[in-house]
Design a protein around this nucleic acid. Structure first.
Lengths: 366, 366
DNA sequence: CTGTTAGCGCGTTCAT
DNA sequence: ATGAACGCGCTAACAG
């Protein structure tokens, strides 16, 4: 038995094809068409014959359901939000990629929001994601250690949750929610320890914006470890590298000029480490690691290709994103969950034994 | 005149707050509330007093409009799709970032889709974006030079357009649509010309998957320029670097082993160039540029930090994304538009004069 | 200026 | 197993 309209032209009507049109073409009601295409109500109760007719009609018309309408009727969507600081930053790109991979495997669409480090925008996007009825959102940017901001964020998150939304954060955002915690403190401690074991005793640190919790955690981890080793870190030996390559380059230049006796530099991320290496090599004429050892953080893809290859603390970035998305899939739980992800030291050649003598004469520029 | 319910508790009702609830709280009809919040119908025709009441109520209730419902009623959304191969690839990350910046400035939300280089997924995402009633989509991944695939893509694009969608592509995708065209051919020619001017005559080329139009264009540009210079490029001097660092490293090793007389390597993107440099430096013990000159393509952020700093052909990646998004904003036109973006040579130190004598004795390993 | 009404397209009872 | 009817939340006529 052919379709009721055997020779109906396959030309699509103007504008989006509706379920109704598919139903008509198949000679059934829209309810049946809906069931045939989505097997709703748990069981697929549509007869073999009709189902085929509907599916054929849908294919011929290139029908795709109207997601907004579906969302309205079902009051749920298959979109999740992921908010980062900046996709162009390889750190966030890696996390986003990890999250997107899992999202894809589960048919979730991701709305990516970049705040460009503007806290205000983070709040904004969160509200818009709530408006979109995004099923969940991953707060992947660093938290901001600002009382007032945190209060507002919490309020927005609460509103989102009241609407049935689920939020997962990467690192602490000052709110109680499922979170994937990279080992920022332990990682930084690892970095310090590595340098210490190589004999270094005069440490400098290239930091980032203090308001970022990621920075605070890493800084804190490094500081504690230094203190535990009996090596306090005076303020003068910490500079703000702005979390960008170029700012870090300048900062490193300043730091080494002011404190020329430093032999070890802990840099709070690889992007800045690239700038620091450039400063040492090209601006100051220092050799790495002979004169100064440098260690980064994150182990971004390019770390191995720097000059010299960067010793760094690896964070499983793709995993961080993947795990966050995974927590979304399992849905919110009564009490917030926490997934801890370890950091790991990756030894390359930007770190080496501390020079026997500080003012090593083998260094022509010193 | 205070609100009609002066002491109404500000506790939000369960589930999402609706416009109706805001209206009730403000003591107006939902239509008025809608107008007060969105100033529809062109002019804001709501009285001062009422508007304030509605806005207050909305704020107190933390109301955000239900985007799906809005989309259904208006039959349009403020979401745009951006499909790339992989966000973790800095090339795509940069384009996406450029697009997202412009999107943000105009209140557009972006759904980012990563195909991981699977053409099937590209089709899939396009359909899903159509289902979402995304206002427009940017096809930022490379096109696939495959007849059958192109046919299916065109069909999907047509369906999307019939639904009022607007598609913009980066580079050619074999379909007639607005497109932002990076100077892949001219850029590759520039690379060849640069090396030629330095005295190089024996060229090798590290390519990528032939099915990608980006690869074909760059390859073609390089080939033509070489031919114009009277230097045909035999098949044996072209290897497929898979568009990844590691595959390129292996490919370069193979190539140089097979064709040790090459003095210039044109690599079709910076990611692969990083691998090629590693191969020459660490696997083959060749000096760059003394023994072999290497030029990349794209000028990714890390290019300057490679060892040695990579001479490359810069593409304005963020601009590409931004311009694509810009074309979306101006809406579709009767005839497809094309924006051409130039490539520019960035000279660093991975390229240098061709060695006077091929078997230069100063090279210990040769 | 403001309220009333009628859809937007789909999922989902409720009958049949 | 299938169809009719209602409602999701909002905007866009249409009155007044």
């Amino acid at each position: 038995m052919p379709t009721p309209t055997p020779d109906a032209p396959v030309t699509r009507p103007a504008g989006p094809v509706t379920l109704q049109q598919v139903a008509e073409r198949a000679g059934v009601s829209s309810a049946t068409a809906s069931r045939a295409l989505h097997g709703s109500s748990g069981t697929r109760i549509v007869g073999e014959e009709l189902r085929r007719r509907v599916q054929d009609a849908a294919r011929e018309l290139r029908y795709v359901s109207n997601a907004p309408a579906q969302a309205l009727a079902r009051s749920t969507t298959s979109v999740v939000g992921v908010v980062v600081h900046d996709v162009a930053d390889p750190y966030f790109a890696a996390i986003a990629a990890g999250a997107m991979g899992v999202a894809r495997e589960h048919g979730l669409l991701v709305m990516l929001a970049a705040t460009f480090r503007d806290p205000e925008l983070e709040l904004d996007y969160l509200a818009r994601l709530r408006a979109q009825r995004a099923r969940a959102v991953v707060l992947a940017g660093s938290g901001f250690a600002d009382r007032e901001f945190t209060r507002r964020l919490a309020a927005e998150v609460d509103a989102y949750r009241a609407d049935g939304g689920h939020v997962v954060s990467v690192g602490s955002h000052g709110i109680a929610c499922d979170t994937v915690r990279p080992a920022n403190r332990a990682g930084a401690a690892l970095a310090v320890r590595h340098l210490y074991d190589l004999g270094h005793r005069r440490f400098g640190l290239v930091s980032g914006p203090r308001a970022l919790t990621t920075v605070r955690d890493r800084l804190d981890g490094a500081r504690r470890q230094l203190r535990a080793l009996g090596l306090p870190l005076p303020p003068g030996r910490v500079v703000d590298g702005g979390f960008t390559r170029d700012a870090a380059r300048t900062a490193a230049r300043t730091l080494l000029t002011r404190e020329p006796e430093l032999t070890a530099l802990v840099v709070l991320n690889d992007v800045m480490a690239a700038g620091v290496l450039a400063a040492l090599r090209d601006d100051l004429g220092l050799r790495v690691p002979d004169d100064v050892s440098v260690i980064g953080f994150d182990d971004l893809p390019f770390a191995a290709d720097l000059n010299p290859p960067l010793t760094t603390v690896r964070l499983p970035l793709a995993d961080i994103g993947a795990q966050a998305m995974q927590m979304i899939l399992t849905g919110p739980t009564i009490t917030p969950r926490t997934v801890d992800l370890n950091a790991e030291l990756v030894t390359r050649t930007s770190t080496g034994p501390a020079a026997a003598s500080p003012g090593d004469p083998s260094n022509p520029k010193r």
